[in-house]
């Protein structure tokens, strides 16, 4: 199956490894992407918290490009991009005024109903069986805390693919890789999101709580599907260590990296070495990669 691809800004910079690992994995699974030509930023948090019109127009510009490119659907691996795209789409669908305003701004008429999928939907739709078929490495040692964050499953009335309070789709994917998943409390608690720079103190506190809960519930790795969450949970562990000296480094992987590992790819290939925290299981895992 072919999908339109909207990487979003983070996947070209701070979350490069997410893009790298995603492309490697889908290639292996026989899925192909058609990247949106000349895509631009979705507007992110900064646009929607300050200028509603701007945020809708920036998001819809990319939907417009996809339509012009003849795509039926878009994969938006970044949870924040995904959320901005579906919310903007939903708004122009519901409010003819906003639709008109946005169409005028972009000098376009939206005709097609382009489906925007997040990364979980991608793997649920066309990945689970292929992951199981192509599994090369034993990951049963891993106990993953699946972290959905805020924007992947909310608002459930619009995202419509999993439960907003007790989601379980990521666990299904994790199980396909052969790794285990723990039941924990903070699956959908917020990490502080876009406050990462301006109010790092908040991000450090919230992310610390999330990591601690995962550890308490027996996890040895956290799996995320959002560059913003990854930055806060991975990069901010240094600041966390300064504020909470007894904090122990805890590995945080992108979902695609974990899938890549199960498919037999190595740490470097997947960009896991680009993280701030060490993925301490990598060595042992690579050693027993002989299964396939």
């Amino acid at each position: 199956m072919k999908y339109g691809y909207f990487p979003g800004c983070s996947l070209t910079s701070s979350a490069k490894e997410y893009d790298i690992s995603l492309r490697k994995v889908i290639d292996k699974l026989g899925i192909s992407f058609d990247e949106i030509n000349d895509w631009s930023c979705c507007g992110a948090t900064s646009a929607h918290v300050t200028n509603h019109k701007l945020s809708t127009a920036l998001a819809m510009r990319n939907i417009m490009l996809a339509e012009q490119q003849g795509l039926d659907n878009i994969i938006a691996p970044c949870a924040a991009c995904y959320n901005r795209l579906i919310i903007s789409q939903n708004e122009i669908g519901k409010h003819s005024g906003i639709r008109k305003e946005t169409e005028d701004l972009l000098s376009v008429k939206f005709k097609k109903d382009i489906k925007v999928f997040n990364i979980l939907e991608l793997f649920l739709k066309s990945g689970i069986n292929k992951i199981i078929e192509n599994r090369k490495r034993e990951l049963s040692e891993l106990k993953a805390a699946c972290y959905y964050g805020c924007l992947l499953v909310r608002p459930a009335a619009i995202t419509k693919f999993d439960d907003a309070e007790e989601p379980e789709s990521m666990e299904k994917i994790i199980e396909a890789t052969g790794a285990g998943a723990v039941d924990w409390n903070y699956k959908t608690e917020c990490c502080g999101a876009a406050h990462s720079i301006a109010r790092r103190d908040i991000v450090v506190d919230l992310s610390k709580k999330i990591l601690d809960d995962a550890i308490t519930h027996g996890a040895n790795v956290m799996v995320v599907a959002c560059p913003m969450c990854h930055t806060n949970l991975d990069m901010r562990q240094r600041a966390m260590k300064r504020k909470y000296p007894d904090h122990k480094e805890f590995p945080v992987l992108y979902l695609t990296e974990l899938i890549g590992l199960s498919l037999g790819m190595d740490e470097k290939e997947l960009g896991i070495d680009l993280h701030y925290t060490n993925f301490k299981y990598a060595d042992t895992l690579l050693n027993n990669s002989a299964k396939g």
Partner: peptide, 11 residues
């Protein structure tokens, strides 16, 4: 301004 836009309240 401190609202992180996480939508917990809305859902």
């Amino acid at each position: 301004w401190l609202c992180a836009g996480c939508l917990t309240c809305s859902v």
